[in-house]
Design a protein around this nucleic acid. Structure first.
Length: 290
DNA sequence: TCCCAGGTCCTGA
DNA sequence: TCAGGACATGGG
């Protein structure tokens, strides 16, 4: 992997286990959108970043070396060896197929607060709607960053902003019945920031128990938050898609979510979170179980 | 019109 | 413990 910089671009050549389509469509993030040329533009912290890929060459546009060191490297998990992960979760032919299909998936290192709110919004919602609500909240309560390729971009709202917001204003962002939960979560998060940001240093069980004390965070959402922003990979979030693919390919039709999770954590081990992502992407893109 | 979405919460047995 | 319904919103 070779890295170079020119004209506000970071160019990485000979990158392995990296595919922008897989990364941004495996359901872990909501703020990345495809441009007409096939590249993806999104917001990370207070930066608007565009990513394009041709084979094993990846170009981060609107990015300098400092941003690469401070944001890109960690966010895109570039220090992790995915060939090792794949070996670890590749326990049968189904997973082998799923891994081949989503070979360029990487689990992004997303910010805790943003991930909490994003997955609270995901409850009983569709992905396009989740994305729309998040963009509405950002343009309403976030800070304007810049106009890029004809579109305005905003930071994800700080907890302070949502904590002091009128619930009706949050409702106007189309958050629906989740609106009061988002505000309450913001108020609590403000008072307990240190606890929330320290979960990544605690055990999975402690993190899960803490997150579930928030109104609007149940098992599924908590597991997603733990997996996508708190580096807990020994978890297996079960949503409608994962339930379908598991009940179609691995377990009985009437198996409960908790038992599906246990089965998967047992089968795929400490890195079952990665297995979940390969399966989610594989089943959603191929309509398995639908 | 009805059904459902990366669920969660509440209620009644 | 556990099934069943409510919950905003919008697309199919």
């Amino acid at each position: 992997m070779e890295i170079s910089e020119k004209n506000n671009q970071i160019i990485i050549q000979n990158i392995k286990d990296f595919n922008v389509t897989h990364i941004f469509n495996c359901g872990q993030c909501f703020r990345w959108n495809m441009e007409a040329d096939g590249s993806y533009t999104g917001v990370v912290k207070d930066k608007v970043i565009n990513v394009e890929q041709e084979g094993s060459t990846v170009i981060f546009n609107n990015m300098d070396m400092e941003g690469y060191e401070n944001i890109i490297k960690e966010y895109f998990d570039l220090n992790t060896d995915y060939s090792e992960i794949k070996r670890s979760v590749n326990t049968d032919e189904i997973m082998s197929e799923a891994i081949k299909f989503g070979s360029g998936i990487r689990i992004l290192n997303q910010e805790e607060w943003e991930t909490m709110i994003s997955f609270m919004i995901s409850a009983n919602n569709r992905i396009p709607m989740i994305k729309r609500v998040i963009e509405n909240l950002s343009s309403c309560f976030g800070e304007f960053i810049c106009n890029y390729r004809g579109r305005n971009y905003y930071t994800f709202p700080e907890a302070e902003k949502l904590a002091e917001a009128d619930v009706e204003k949050i409702r106007e962002c189309k958050a629906g019945f989740r609106s009061p939960r988002l505000k309450n979560a913001a108020v609590r998060f403000l008072n307990e920031k240190d606890v929330a940001y320290n979960i990544k240093n605690k055990s999975y069980d402690e993190g899960l128990a803490y997150l579930k004390t928030y109104e609007g965070i149940g098992n599924k959402v908590a597991n997603c938050i733990l997996l996508f922003s708190m580096r807990k990979f020994d978890t297996f979030p079960v949503d409608v898609w994962v339930r379908r693919v598991m009940q179609t390919l691995y377990v009985d039709k009437d198996t409960k979510d908790a038992d599906i999770r246990k089965f998967a954590e047992n089968k795929f081990g400490k890195l079952s979170g990665y297995a979940q992502q390969y399966l989610f992407y594989y089943s959603r893109e191929n309509g398995i179980g639908k």
